[in-house]
Design a protein around this nucleic acid. Sequence first.
RNA 1: GCGCCCGUAGCUCAACCGGAUAGAGCGUUGGGCUUCGAACCCAAAGGCUGGAGGUUCGAGUCCUCCCGGGCGCGCCA
Length: 555
Amino acid sequence: MIARIIQEELAALVVKAQAEGLLPPTVKPRFQVEPPKHKDYGDYATNIALSLAGQARKNPRELAAWFAENLRKRQDLFAKVEVAGPGFINFFIAPRYWQQVPTVIEKEGPNYGRVDVGQGRRIQVEFVSANPTGPLHIGHGRGAAVGDTLSRILSFANFKVEKEYYINDMGRQMKILGRSVYLRAKELAGEKIDFPEDHYRGAYIIAIARALLEKEPDLLALPEEEGIERAKEFALTTILAEIKKDLEDFGVTYDNWFSEKSLYETSQVEKALSLLREKGLLYEKDGAVWFKASAFGDEKDRVVIRASGEPTYFASDIAYHYNKFFTRKYHRVIDIWGADHHGYIPRLKAVIKAFGLPEEKLQVMLIQMVNLLEGGRLKSMSTRAGEFVTLRELIDEVGKDATRFIFLTRRCDSPLDFDVELAKKQSRENPVYYVQYAHARLASLFRKAAEEGLGLPRVEEVDLSLLNTEEDFNLLKLLDYFPDTIEACAVNLEPHLLTFYLLDLATALHDYYTKHRFLSEDRPRTKARLILAKAVKQVLACGLDLLGVSAPERM
RNA sequence: GCGCCCGUAGCUCAACCGGAUAGAGCGUUGGGCUUCGAACCCAAAGGCUGGAGGUUCGAGUCCUCCCGGGCGCGCCA
């Protein structure tokens, strides 16, 4: 949080500089305050002078010197303020600033780390939304981990978040699903059938068919059309229930399960399309109805109603996003898709623009593919043939915690090689244990302290200036940086930053642990260190919770 | 052919709106438990950031071209 304080100081000084005529009133203060890579450059550094020098036609070092001069007055914050290099300003933060960090954490409790990026605005995050035609696989797992964690972080950053799963419960895929189950049922009844190549061939279809026959023994006596319809409904509810269960066991729950079919039942498709028609953005050609997507940056126009009279999936999506923005009035919407859908973005963005909305209202996050590695070799997956690793298998074999953590140790736009064997190992190669171990170690420490009759001291009665070793400061600085991390995650939609932060914090804790003792004969110091330990434990637990990973007391 | 994403240490990955000497883990080599949890720590080796130009005070990051990999380019979803 010191970064924010410095930013405010600098912003105030820009105003002052303008008042004194040092800077022209027109300059736009664009600058960063960040921890520099090298320790010699202080705890934080800013490029403000370099940034303003160009605009104001001033010497950057002279400008920097002026800022530094004024900043030195804040001796409560800065031990030293230096001008360096081409015009950077380096800040060496006063020890007593760091030493009061535990007091802040104590005071804010579980709310420590909350920031106000969202200002209470409503935001929707839609993710996974896999077709309910089969079990979730490893790729959906990545989307689930990212979507859920991002949602948790956004609520922590004061957005009012709603998580949503969009169910494609109509259209051709559903018909094929129904027919697949129906055919398997026939087969189970002893009939020889020719199972079509393009139908769902996974073993789970047979299991569903068997369950259906048990429930409705007369199924095959019904007219075929009706039988297929029954099979479809049954398959949909069965598969959806399994998807829901898998996600719950993965730590993911939704606020809404939104049915595509409902868009038609409540005539929202008509409504959305007529809005576009009124604007003159729909036209007929070759018997189909087209949307003028090319007028809004897409490559070409897109069909919304086929010549057959059936609406396309795109028509549903137009209505769905009409619903998101106009019926439910979300301030912002985030759609999380697999990277293979990226070609779809321009057309949906075109819809948003056609609606007269600013493009940024909709953000589409693409999650890159997951490759499965087994023993270091790439394993090919084929959904059609029913050969894939399911999310369920990962939860059962690898565990929720390790799986989520691994998915979150990568940037979303980087493809991920998932090594199942490695993920199963309970060793250092598996980074989740590194962070959890830090937490469990601290839990153990407090058990030990209790055994020795040491209660938790109150922060007011502790001399925090005793936290004065290099390792103390490492931890204090990281603790202070936690809210900044949350902010960065929320602003950039990058949950992996939190994962890396937690790894850093765990590293600093383990380092501390080997170099110092928390409990000693020196009572004042012991108290101070217990306060520090408590703060670290709290932030670790909070961060792990945001990742949807457990923070064990023992392991 | 066109579009999007990626290319960073042997391997898997970081690097916040362009910042100063590009960082971790694994693996390799060598060290560290009579003391709160060794699932830990310390040290060493390891790099022309795929290549070539350009923009500027300054480029892994931005622009152009090339090479290599992935994914798209339906009246499929």
